[in-house]
Nucleic acid binder design. Structure first.
Lengths: 139, 139
DNA sequence: TTATTCTGTTACTAATATAGTAACAATATG
DNA sequence: CATATTGTTACTATATTAGTAACAGAATAA
């Protein structure tokens, strides 16, 4: 498996919750859909819950539902909630003092990659969970 | 160090080559700037060379230079050359047959994330190596 | 020709990040 | 009180990435 999959797992979970709108889902049933263990799903659910995207209840009849309408949740909300990594990150090598490139490259990269990161975020903001749910239902 | 740094290392190397326009640089001098070993730099240089972005010569006086003007190289060219990972990748869990979400989520994610990937690529295409070099020089 | 010094490549090790699992306290239900 | 859930922690396994060393092939210069 490659990198950054936590985001796609979170979208999978949210789509599962949105698919049966309002129906209670447990970490076990979601884990069956994703094909992983309930514990792993709960770790993701916990983040989504803290971000106010899902509502969870503990106890015997504990379950999860979407905290908002799928049309009011963007993929950017999910992206932020799970704290997924940036599109690009800058290398962490120490600066080599006498070299002007070494001294300035990180700041230059930051300025430039900020644009790219913003374009990613704009793109994610423009896609709602509802779109993904409908797409899954339409097949 | 986090993920995706290979791209930033490649940009660092290319900026080093562009900084002293036309001057010969070796993998050793570039490695000193980045702060890593020459072997690692050569691996990246090799990819950049195959992509036609740098020109290398072997032998005793071997060295590297940019193969084009910095103004004719975009960060997207570098991104492609080093085969950096996509902005988002989709999880690789097996499909759980009876679950419609599990069966369709990957295709839905692909359709949706293609938009995001394109916006990243457009953004990288709009930034030239020359801009990064000037930024480094201007400090 | 011979020694030198580069690149290009391979093979390997170390470090890091991520996924996967198990366990259990806290909680709510019936 | 027995049960079934979340939330969290601690830990292990796996995959990815960085780092290093070694060496063949190539070009230069003595």
């Amino acid at each position: 498996m490659s990198n950054n999959t936590q985001f796609s797992i979170a979208v999978h979970i949210m789509t599962g919750l949105g698919y049966k709108d309002g129906a209670d889902m447990t970490s076990s049933s979601l884990a069956r859909s994703v094909n992983t263990c309930p514990s792993f799903v709960r770790r993701v659910l916990s983040k989504l819950s803290k971000a106010g995207l899902v509502h969870t209840t503990t106890g015997k009849a504990g379950a999860c539902t979407l905290a908002k309408k799928a049309s009011e949740i963007s993929l950017f909300d999910i992206y932020e909630a799970v704290d997924a990594p940036k599109a690009f990150s800058i290398h962490g090598y120490d600066v080599q003092k006498p070299c002007p490139v070494s001294c300035n490259i990180k700041a230059a990269l930051e300025r430039v990659l900020e644009k790219t990161q913003l374009s990613v975020e704009e793109s994610l903001k423009s896609i709602t969970l509802e779109e993904v749910v409908s797409d899954v239902k339409s097949v």
